[in-house]
Amino acid sequence: MNKSERTRQDIIEKTAVLFNEQGFAGTSYKHLMAATGLSKGCIYGHFESKDDLALAVFDFNISKLTSYFEERISKKENSVDRLLVYPTTLRNFLTLPAWEGGCPILNTSTEADDTHPLLKNRASNALISWQNKIEQLILVGIERGEIKSSTDVTELAVVIVLMIESSVMQTKVTGRLLELNIAMGFLEKMIRNIAR
């Protein structure tokens, strides 16, 4: 990685939490300059626009979050245990470094659904990709005989994603873990019930 690429990556990493917490509209160039210690011209030298930087930051945040879960999932042998990584890990999402500022999919979707088509598209693709990964985990489990063959793969994947996202939203808004823990406990039961 050359100096220019390192600077570009440094800008992305230093502004990642800022965009995730404050959103696209709430993040000004003053904020970006304060976070990076760079001038507006230097930032523009590495990104065509604030939109360009926001998209790169979203991709970085999703990659960080995906890697966080994939690392934990890869340590589990059984498909049911792999699916259980989501609810067991998310019980403490407020303290997870990968979720600093909240879920980037949820935060971006909420802000960009009617205001920023490019970010909305990125968030939509991230949701679809996540759902597809969960479907793959379930299908592998069925093939291995670890998950009941009668399991509706798409239905379960959709419910997992929706329960997680809505629980995270409620916890971020209220600052309470009670409802999140109830929802993740329910999700754990659902996942254990598909085991063969």
Score class of each variant (00 low, 15 high):
143 E>Q: 04
145 G>H: 02
111 E>G: 11
19 F>H: 05
45 G>I: 05
121 N>E: 10
104 P>C: 10
24 F>D: 02
179 E>Y: 01
21 E>P: 02
175 G>S: 08
88 T>G: 02
110 T>V: 14
17 V>C: 08
92 N>D: 14
57 V>G: 04
79 S>C: 04
33 M>D: 03
171 T>C: 13
61 N>Q: 14
84 L>T: 05
111 E>Y: 14
77 E>T: 14
103 C>L: 03
147 I>W: 10
178 L>H: 06
59 D>Q: 08
2 N>Y: 05
37 G>N: 10
47 F>V: 13
196 R>P: 13
28 S>E: 07
99 W>I: 15
1 M>N: 00
118 L>F: 08
105 I>Q: 03
72 R>K: 15
8 R>V: 09
136 Q>F: 08
77 E>A: 11
138 I>G: 01
91 R>H: 01
23 G>N: 11
93 F>Q: 03
124 S>H: 02
186 F>V: 07
149 S>N: 15
111 E>I: 12
6 R>F: 14
192 R>W: 06
23 G>D: 04
84 L>W: 10
92 N>C: 03
81 D>N: 14
48 E>A: 15
78 N>W: 02
67 S>R: 14
115 T>P: 00
75 K>W: 00
130 W>P: 01
34 A>D: 15
90 L>P: 05
185 G>E: 05
181 N>A: 08
186 F>H: 06
49 S>K: 07
164 I>H: 06
181 N>S: 04
80 V>Q: 00
87 P>S: 02
131 Q>T: 12
159 V>M: 08
45 G>S: 01
133 K>C: 09
118 L>M: 08
123 A>M: 05
58 F>S: 03
125 N>Q: 06
63 S>Q: 11
69 F>I: 07
51 D>G: 04
195 A>L: 03
158 V>A: 00
71 E>F: 11
110 T>G: 03
70 E>V: 08
174 T>Y: 04
63 S>N: 13
149 S>V: 15
116 H>W: 14
145 G>E: 06
7 T>R: 00
72 R>D: 13
22 Q>H: 13
78 N>H: 09
19 F>V: 11
44 Y>L: 12
5 E>R: 04
45 G>N: 03
113 D>C: 10
105 I>S: 05
64 K>S: 12
150 S>I: 15
